[in-house]
Design a protein around this nucleic acid. Structure first.
Length: 919
RNA sequence: GGGCGAUUAGCUCAGGGGUAGAGCGCCACGUUGACAUCGUGGAGGUCGGUGGUUCGAAACCACCAUCGCCCACCA
């Protein structure tokens, strides 16, 4: 084995072997464990969030697979309608073309080509992470089977009246020229103005002042509203105003919606361009006048002067017109929520169009119930509150998009506009007896990407067929995802799963946090703080990193700043850490309910951890090379260190099982780290050397120790494997050969069984660690060179101490590097002293120890002991404490006081003796 | 306007009614036959504030402060 662990040398070869051997194939049988992957964008690349999520899913999957449960991690990718279409359109734009130049069929063909050429990237990256998905089941939301499921579901929902087509106000993205769902619109505070316009009463007697943030919509005003109880305006209700510029006479209506406190208390009402106004329009039967085209220009029904003007130019001109008419009262600065499309970033317009909707009320009811009664459990629990909050306020879901890339809506129209829904045109004609001579036209729109995503947990398992996979794995076990798509995806999967697959789609939803940069900032290309998980695995030099971060920016002027920050933060680039270190880092950071700051310091630490494991294994294999492992005697009695390490291993296994069960990968990782480094390496390996390097030790003892060293390592590797599959596999293959296990992989190896604890061994070890620690402390603080062996005298010992010291003598000698170890009645004064319970551990000073320094050291201990004693005695002196605290607590406190008193007395005595000696 | 979360060592974070923890960083010493990506020892915190419950609060409760996120129609 090489002296340091080299991840690059082993990772890819192992993964290829695993995949070829089919270790990740779906297991057969009932009560399986299944995770369906949140399908990434097929043409996308892996980012830190994916890597984090994949690590969690892979760890859980590997763990269950090792436990012998039929296991499936279902992979796949999403067609990501808008996102993918935009990418390809941008490519066309670069050639000076638009998608309309190509036409629909050619454009869609082009997107498929792009999907074929770039679609493999994310899968390759997942392989680098070690993701143990069943690639043979890989699915794509637009492959044939899934598209059929989409059509079937659409048709059934339509037939049941749960999908309908309607003309309503929708969120319209005028750049992409498509409708968006409420979720795809993000409203942010932006600086704007509040324009106050005077609208003259029709009788010319006076005017009303209305305030608006969007002057251009006044062209479509069909009323002015005031609050019914607003005394200022009550007498005007029912009268009309003459809308300036368009000279339309419109009514003054009373509506509770109006807040008399805000602005002037008068609101202009534009039902065709504002969601609230739309509602008011419905209540008052107002006309809806659309003033815009689908790319947000003023349409041809409007006064000629404004036709064809962009909405923002029109805004300026209308304000100008009001000013010149003397009707501009004033302009105020005003911050307002501006709705923008989450993809295009353009200001979204409420726009009156025909769209398809899912009527969610009937679907939501059972979906709410499933979470309420615990059939689906959110982890952490508080997310269910977010879920309920949203589910109780659902609006119908607009599912049609005016795009070309996606599942085309399976609806056909005849020339009189009748709608026929069916799987294809032939089916539609058959079902409705439509003669071939009658032309039918398919709906141009495609479905919201999330429509197919909502079906993902059962569509990928083969529904509607009664497949083995459905039987074994539906409902799936757990959904692992971020909080940002609870509404987009989680809620809709629950609704659709219950409606169509007859049960909840998953039993638990594990919500993880967002990966942020070291300063807590979101990672984004424009901030230039993105880390590529593959760069953390393989490393990257500074120049390449700078180039990666500064090319392809939407705002190229940010490049210099990004470059500077990158050079400052990574002066040496990023070193190679390997996949296992990255995965271990993610797991360690996977605490529930909070975002994760990705700190390079952590990954470095876990790379070191991998190296530590590597070297401990190297030691275990080398040090036992010449040992015949089969020569362990029949009646072999394991030594204390062996009993201890096995006891600790059992504790580790149990702890990891407990923490995995509650998705606390951070605590599981911490337990693994602690055991590996601080128990196996720091103590057991050192203790094992005592036997293995001892010429006096019998062959049987050596063989027994070697066996334990290797057996425990083997179990440890299995415990670590779900988190760090590559390094454990590599070591394990060598180990398995040595142990004659005939094992080809850890992927399908048995999860180790947790045996009984051995309290006696643990207590003996605590004693040993206490004594060794005391002596090491003296060494450390007295600056005794580590290589210098020291004599040690034990006194004031109990029979128990003596028995232990005798049994553990060789261990003490080695671990504390002792020259000698003796029991004495009265140790000389000139000693450095450590107390372990009643036992006094003395290191004679001759030539080793500075008396003044030792006094100082003891004084520090004395002060601490005195403080502890004071606190303890304070408690015991409190009558209330003694009477009301549980007896065990009081007894423990008394014992502690006793110990402190005794230690204090002896420290005082020792200090005085040293003082006397110095005089 | 509602809801959620955070506040613990210099940094990143666990924990949790009974003597404050880890990793990294820091200081000192160290070429001991697995590992300097290491070893041994050490320093460092009145657990955001105020009040309450309790024999006992960093933990439970209330209020406050600061930061962050989500939802919501104020023109």
């Amino acid at each position: 084995m090489h002296k340091t662990f080299d991840p690059q040398a082993i990772e890819q070869a192992h993964y290829e072997r695993w995949e070829q051997a089919g270790y990740f194939a779906a297991g057969k049988g009932d009560n399986g464990f299944c995770i369906v992957i949140p399908p990434p964008n097929v043409t996308g690349t892996l980012h830190m969030g994916h890597a984090f999520q994949d690590t969690i899913m892979d760890t859980l999957t590997r763990y269950h697979r090792m436990r012998g449960v039929p296991t499936l991690w279902q992979p796949g990718t999403d067609h990501a309608g808008i996102a993918t279409q935009m990418v390809v359109e941008r490519q066309l734009n670069a050639d000076g073309k638009t998608r309309h130049d190509l036409g629909r069929d050619a454009f869609v063909e082009r997107v498929w080509q792009w999907k074929e050429s770039s679609g493999g990237k994310i899968s390759r990256q997942m392989r680098r992470l070690g993701a143990s998905v069943d690639w043979s089941r890989d699915r794509f939301t637009m492959d044939e089977g899934l598209s059929e499921v989409v059509r079937d579901v659409f048709i059934q929902l339509y037939d049941e009246g749960l999908i309908y087509r309607g003309k309503r106000l929708v969120n319209w993205d005028p750049v992409l020229r498509t409708a968006l769902s409420d979720l795809e619109v993000l409203s942010e505070d932006e600086a704007g103005h509040l324009w106050h316009f005077r609208y003259p009463l029709a009788d010319g007697s006076q005017h009303l002042t209305v305030a608006t943030t969007r002057p251009e919509t006044m062209l479509g005003d069909t009323a002015v509203a005031v609050h019914p109880e607003d005394e200022r305006y009550q007498h005007l209700i029912g009268q009309t105003v003459l809308l300036p510029i368009v000279d339309r006479e419109i009514p003054i209506v009373a509506d509770e919606y109006v807040d008399p406190e805000f602005g002037t208390g008068c609101v202009k009402i534009t039902p065709a361009h504002d969601f609230n106004d739309y509602e008011i329009g419905q209540r008052h039967n107002l006309e809806m006048i659309n003033v815009l085209t689908d790319d947000a220009r003023i349409n041809d029904d409007m006064p000629e002067a404004y036709r064809g003007l962009d909405r923002f130019d029109a805004r300026a001109q209308i304000v100008e017109a009001f000013e010149s008419l003397g009707l501009l009262d004033r302009v105020e600065d005003h911050t307002l929520k501006v709705p923008r499309g989450d993809r295009s970033g353009s200001v979204v317009e409420p726009y009156l169009t025909d769209q398809w909707y899912v009527k969610v009320g009937p679907l939501a009811e059972p979906a709410i119930q499933a979470v309420a009664d615990g059939r689906i459990r959110f982890v952490p629990e508080n997310w269910s509150k977010t879920y309920f909050n949203w589910m109780h306020n659902l609006e119908d879901w607009c599912i049609s998009r005016q795009l070309w890339w996606g599942h085309r809506i399976p609806a056909w129209y005849d020339e009189s506009g009748n709608i026929f829904v069916g799987s294809d045109e032939t089916a539609v004609r058959e079902q409705h007896n439509i003669d071939a001579s009658i032309p039918l036209r398919q709906d141009d729109d495609v479905l919201d990407t999330w429509f197919s995503s909502a079906l993902w947990p059962f569509s990928t398992l083969g529904w509607p067929d009664q497949t083995e996979a459905m039987a074994s794995y539906y409902p799936t076990s757990v959904l692992v995802t971020g909080f940002d798509i609870i509404f987009f995806w989680v809620a809709r999967m629950i609704m659709m799963g219950m409606k169509f697959a007859g049960d909840v789609p998953f039993r638990e939803v594990y919500i993880h946090g967002l990966i942020r940069d070291q300063d807590g900032q979101k990672m984004s290309k424009s901030k230039g703080n993105v880390l590529d998980p593959i760069d953390l695995i393989d490393g990257i030099d500074l120049e390449s990193l700078v180039e990666k971060r500064t090319t392809g920016l939407m705002q190229p002027h940010l490049a210099p700043r990004i470059e500077k920050a990158t050079r400052r933060q990574f002066p040496e680039g990023i070193p190679e850490f390997g996949t296992d270190a990255l995965r271990f880092t993610f797991a360690s950071l996977a605490t529930t309910g909070r975002d994760v700051r990705f700190d390079l310091g952590r990954i470095e630490g876990y790379r070191n951890f991998c190296n530590k494991l590597w070297n401990a294994s190297r030691f275990a294999l080398q040090a036992t090379e010449d040992t015949n492992l089969d020569s362990v005697p029949e009646n072999y009695e394991p030594s204390l260190p062996e009993r201890w390490i096995r006891s600790r291993l059992n504790e580790l296994i149990g702890e990891v099982e407990r923490q995995f069960a509650r998705y606390r990968l951070d605590l599981a990782a911490q337990a693994m780290y602690e055991f590996t480094w601080h128990e196996y390496c720091d103590w057991f390996v050192e203790l094992a050397k005592t036997t293995l390097y001892d010429d006096q030790a019998t062959d049987g003892a050596k063989a027994g120790m070697a066996r334990t060293l290797l057996d425990v390592l083997d179990a440890l590797l299995r415990v670590l494997h779900p988190l760090t599959p590559f390094i454990t596999e590599e070591i394990s293959l060598q180990l398995a050969e040595r142990l004659g296990l005939g094992r080809e992989t850890l992927c399908t190896a048995d999860w180790p069984a947790a045996g009984q604890a051995d309290p006696q061994a643990e207590s003996h070890m605590l004693w040993l660690q206490g004594i060794v620690g005391g002596i090491r402390q003296i060494r450390g603080e007295m600056d005794i060179a580590p290589g210098k062996a020291v004599p040690v005298l034990l006194s004031e010992s109990t029979a128990d101490d003596e028995a232990r010291a005798t049994e553990l003598r060789p261990l003490l000698m080695r671990l504390a590097n002792l020259e000698s170890l003796e029991f004495v009645q009265d140790p000389p004064t000139a000693c450095a002293v450590a107390l372990h319970g009643n036992l006094r551990v003395s290191v004679p000073m001759a030539g080793l120890i500075d008396v003044a320094k030792e006094r100082e050291r003891l004084q520090k201990q004395r002060d601490k002991t005195a403080a502890d004693l004071a606190r303890t005695e304070g408690k015991l002196g409190n009558q209330n404490f003694v009477e009301r605290a549980p007896e065990a607590v009081v007894v423990e406190e008394q014992r502690r006081a006793e110990e402190h008193r005794s230690a204090l007395a002896r420290l005082d005595a020792q200090i005085q003796e040293l003082a006397a000696m110095a005089d």
